[in-house]
């Protein structure tokens, strides 16, 4: 008997359909951004126009949420980069008591449903009488972004030959010189990838945010409101494309920064 090397036709078709299922819906958003129909989701669109991009640009209620989303994503990513890298460095150094528990603690904010993280923070703010602000949103976002940076950094630390750190010390470098000249250059692309994924995740996050934002509006919350109570549907489509692009580009970059290794970014969202 020969081993099977060619895939069965049924499997190929099923796999192809599965991939199409994953991608076609997203493409549809692009089409709808150009429709002339304003009130319904009519398909096929009765006509095509580019005017909605101009309309969206002129809408003043879009800019503050966009600005807030970018600000939150930037601060959360910066915090996650520091905290995630520190945790990964500690993990790579030694086996210590509570190591397993720590990795579980880091994983928990994305392993448990977002609504739990959100509701927990909401409860805590309520208990402490803390008013909602940019920082309440950041508290939530940084918490679930840590694991993204951590995963990327820990994989790179594992691949990094432990002896190059020793070689550096052996040649006379102190810990700070070793970090600056040897660890950081080898870690940089993994951190960049982790940072971009964290940024994309934060920029797009809506579930935790609705619990920590109060009356503030991030771009995803703005979009959610438009979905529940639509005003100008094609404008929402344009914003959807912007959100999609803002998350898509960093993901693609992160993939290319880390591909080829066993630590390709993003496998563990």
């Amino acid at each position: 008997m020969s081993s099977e090397t060619r895939p069965p036709v049924g499997l190929t078709v099923a796999a192809g359909l599965g991939l199409l299922f994953l991608h076609l819906p997203i493409l549809l958003i692009f089409l709808y951004a150009f429709t002339t129909e304003e009130r319904t989701y009519q398909f096929p669109p009765p006509g095509l126009t580019t005017k909605w991009f101009a309309v969206a640009w002129a809408r003043e209620d879009i800019w503050p949420p966009l600005y807030l989303s970018l600000k939150v994503a930037a601060i959360s990513t910066a915090l996650a980069l520091v905290l995630g890298t520190l945790a990964a460095a500690a993990m790579s150094r030694a086996r210590f008591f509570g190591r397993e528990q720590l990795s579980l603690l880091i994983l928990l904010p994305i392993a448990l449903p977002g609504i739990i993280t959100g509701m927990s923070l909401r409860s805590a703010f309520d208990v402490m009488g803390m008013p909602f602000s940019t920082w309440t949103i950041v508290l939530g976002h940084a918490t679930f972004c840590i694991v993204i940076v951590f995963n990327n950094a820990v994989a790179r630390f594992r691949r990094l030959s432990g002896s190059i750190v020793e070689a550096s010390a052996d040649l006379g470098a102190n810990g700070f010189q070793t970090f600056w000249h040897v660890i950081l250059p080898n870690l940089a692309s993994a951190l960049l990838a982790g940072g971009m994924l964290a940024f994309a995740l934060s920029f797009d996050e809506v579930i935790v945010t609705t619990f920590t934002a109060g009356q503030q509006s991030t771009l995803p919350i703005w979009m959610l409101n438009e979905l529940v109570r639509p005003r100008q549907r094609p404008v929402t489509n344009v914003v959807a494309i912007v959100v999609f692009a803002t998350t898509f580009v960093p993901i693609l970059l992160a993939y290319y920064l880390t591909r080829g290794g066993d630590d390709t970014a993003g496998a563990g969202k």
């Binding site: 994953l22 819906p25 997203i26 995803p220 959100v243 998350t247």
Partner: peptide, 13 residues
């Protein structure tokens, strides 16, 4: 890519 692309946009689609 579908894993990481915007959740809200996917629902909206």
């Amino acid at each position: 890519l579908p894993l990481w692309s915007s959740y809200l946009v996917k629902v909206y689609a």
